[in-house]
């Protein structure tokens, strides 16, 4: 990791200024999160006070308790975990398998399929909803978590990303494995996959996040409250035309907290993936 060396800026004063700017920036960026929690702790009257209040007079911790009870506790979290986790695992498998195929094999139609794959990334996702819903009805998985997951088992972006990664695997390594008599699938499993650990982690982290946050599709699929994901449960906290906004904010905070933890724990992979998206595409 090299860094630009700019001697003219290297005075203490400059460093102080930079810290100051960064602190301001981070304050601005994290402010909505703190405010979310502050608002979640307000009373009905405080949340509708004019002008808006920064902090509640007495934190109403029971708001979280009420919201927790209304979303039926742990249940939507588990549902979301199943959906996001399941999609992530399947995507990792399909993406790495196809990425390996696209990167390391030549076969007729390869480039055409790959081009289609790239092109499919620009399709407005919205167009799929009606056909998808019809399809999951045909195989009788409407109103199930599997129905939410199924259309997302393959991701063009994931395949693309894994291919870019696997292109860097030296061919010698693969040939050496072949010499040892490994089957092609074994090469994928024992040579390619282990080398792609960071890429898989990155892809997985992003996939999990995306499906944790997804709303429209689960909303269409899941009519049964018992199957609701966290976003759906939070949506149901909304009051009548703007009333009890603090409850929905409390729910929103509860749905965001796991995401914040995830970002902190997996930050290396998120950063890696972010950087990758700029450099490699």
């Amino acid at each position: 990791m090299t860094r630009l060396n700019r001697p003219r800026l290297q005075s203490q004063a400059n460093l102080l200024l930079i810290y100051l700017i960064m602190i301001v920036v981070v304050t601005v960026i994290t402010f909505p999160y703190f405010y979310m929690i502050s608002m979640a702790l307000m009373t009905e009257a405080e949340s509708a006070a004019i002008p808006g209040r920064f902090l509640p007079a007495i934190p109403q911790w029971q708001n979280f308790q009420v919201a927790w009870g209304r979303i039926q506790g742990l249940r939507p979290y588990l549902n979301t975990l199943i959906v996001a986790g399941g999609v992530t695992l399947v995507q990792l498998f399909t993406s790495s398998l196809a990425g390996f195929g696209f990167a390391k094999y030549r076969f007729p139609g390869r480039d055409l399929v790959f081009l289609l794959l790239l092109g499919s990334m620009t399709i407005p996702l919205f167009i799929n909803i009606i056909p998808w819903f019809w399809m999951i009805n045909q195989i009788d998985i409407n109103n199930t978590l599997l129905g939410v997951m199924a259309p997302h088992f393959v991701t063009a972006f994931g395949v693309f990303m894994m291919r870019q990664f696997m292109l860097d695997i030296p061919d010698d390594l693969i040939d050496a494995a072949r010499m040892d008599g490994a089957s092609e699938f074994m090469i994928y499993r024992t040579v390619a996959l282990p080398l792609c650990g960071p890429a898989l982690a990155t892809l997985g982290a992003f996939a999990f996040l995306y499906h944790w946050n997804d709303l429209l599709w689960p909303l269409i699929v899941l009519s049964d409250r018992a199957n609701w994901t966290i976003n759906l449960a939070v949506l149901a906290l909304q009051g009548y035309m703007g009333v009890s906004r603090y409850l929905q904010i409390a729910g929103g905070a509860m749905s965001v907290i796991p995401v914040i933890i995830l970002v902190i724990v997996l930050q290396r992979y998120f950063v890696q993936g972010t950087a990758l998206s700029g450099i490699k595409g």
């Binding site: 195929g101 076969f107 399929v113 699938f185």
Partner: peptide, 13 residues
Amino acid sequence: WGFLFVLPVTLFL
């Protein structure tokens, strides 16, 4: 093999 590797994704696509 190459074809097999990308087959699931292609069909799904």
